[in-house]
Amino acid sequence: MNILAKERKVRELESKIDALGSEEVVNKMKLEIENYKQEAMTNLTAWDRVLLARHQLRPTAKEFINYLCDDFIELHGDRLFRDDKSIIGGIGSINGNIVTIIAQQKGKSLDENLERNFAMPHPEGYRKSLRLMKQAEKFRRPIITLIDTPGAYPGLEAEERGQGEAIARNLLEMSNLTVPTIAVIIGEGGSGGALALGVTNRVLMLENAIYSILSPEGYATILWKDSTLASKAAEAMKLTSYDLEEYGIIDKIIKEPLGGAHFNKIKTFQNTKQGILEELYNLRKFTGEELRDTRMEKYRKFGFFQRFNYDNL
């Protein structure tokens, strides 16, 4: 039974409560549900976390921004081609810290998803975020990116306009920024499309978010020629927050309430806000050059290999 089936059962039990009359029975029932949740929703598998990261009710970037910022002004367009709606960006203040926020936005309904292109950005989206980052650097604002995308859009027009170049340029320019940068992976972190907003001083990750080189389905198709083995692939890919923290790819895990972020959105937002504020405070003591250099040092170390040093033989 995967996490979605368990969740359905919880909802089913909850819906029964109203039908019950006396308070005593209700309380007993509530306790029972809590117990079941405790039992069923801890020790999630990697595939469970994939399902949670893609959950229909999972809070999207806009909801995070609404809670994080007292005021948020969205800015549009890459000044070259058009405005990409799958990435939103703008200026806001978090507890008085003025920051630039760039986020990948999924839709809540099918219509909105079509408008947002399922949070799969085109090159102009990445060029817009680069423009806003440069702007933030000019005015010495820290940058916060919220990552939630299945990947960069693999379409005809995206290729024509240079998807590869846009991502590569972002990777290079984000490394060169002299303001504090923080990435928060709030849902799906899919391949280069996520990394293009994720080369930052600190990378935070929600407990049930995922971050991987491609989707488990794609992985199973490429390596095992069978997309139905996705749940097995999810285990093999080591894409959960706990695995990635162990590898040092991400810096910190932001805890989610039991059962996933959507069970208690406010709690999720609070934890996220606290995490961001802590990191903003920690990064405040560095100069621009230090921020750039430490960021580069961090990424320089990534890789898993051995070197047989013949010079010492």
Binding site: L171, L195, M237, L239, Y247, Y299, G303
Partner: peptide
């Protein structure tokens, strides 16, 4: 996996 992805940034 993720180690390959990080090579892009590196």
């Amino acid at each position: 996996g993720i180690f390959s992805l990080m090579q892009m940034a590196k």
